[in-house]
Amino acid sequence: MQPDAVPPLLSARGVTKFYDGILGCRDVSFEIWPGEVLGVVGESGSGKTTLLHCISARLEPTAGTVEYMTRHDGPADIYRISEPARRLLMRTDWGFVHQNPREGLRMGVSAGANIGERLMAVGARHYGNIRHAATDWLDKVEMDTGRMDDLPITFSGGMQQRLQIARNLVTAPRIVFMDEPTGGLDVSVQARLLDLLRGLVSDLGLAAVIVTHDLAVARLLSHRLLVMRRGEVVESGLTDQVLDDPQHPYSQLLVSSVIHP
């Protein structure tokens, strides 16, 4: 098998971010291939979210590059391409799922409009078709299609998170960035959401970067892991390898700190 036969979808090289001299993340490099799920774990303040923002064109790094394999023009440095091209990528080819669904949803419009927005943004002008796509996606994220015209505020946290996921996936993105997608949900809701995410990722062949502080979530969703501490990646590798045979003192501490119910 030739691992390099398929080029990576996203490559981060030496990504470093300082906030006015304060370290966000330093010298982070990795690659993600199509269909691959990369977990980023570490405690609060370890730079996970900074890294996620840097690689998703939301926060320009102080140093380093992020290269994305575009559909038509080959690899492109996401901070060097034109702003319109970058913004188009962000609302078509990429998805971003926030921990707090309020940040990722338009709270003032219905569930259907939330899902349809990205379609309208790329030129869909047929109400019936948009509505059909919205129904389809509500169904895929296992929501009641009868509630399509309800405002997100009327949904539970888990449902809002599903809606956010549907809103992101409707344009068939190739990579989705998720910041603690199951954070803030109670465990039973979390389990069903994990199952849904896992199914969607594998059925759609999505690549994903999932930031989480929950090692169980990382184990169930990701193929590979980065362990971050104080802004740096201290260990990386196959998820089960990192969790079952951690090498770095910090990874060992992290794994041994998990409380098993």
């Binding site: 419009v109 349809g116 927005e117 309208m120 002008r125």
Partner: peptide
Amino acid sequence: RKMHALQEYGPMHVRLYEDIAH
């Protein structure tokens, strides 16, 4: 201003969508 510059007007239809839906 950026949305005007880049003609990102698609989301404007969200409001019309809401009208029809309701």
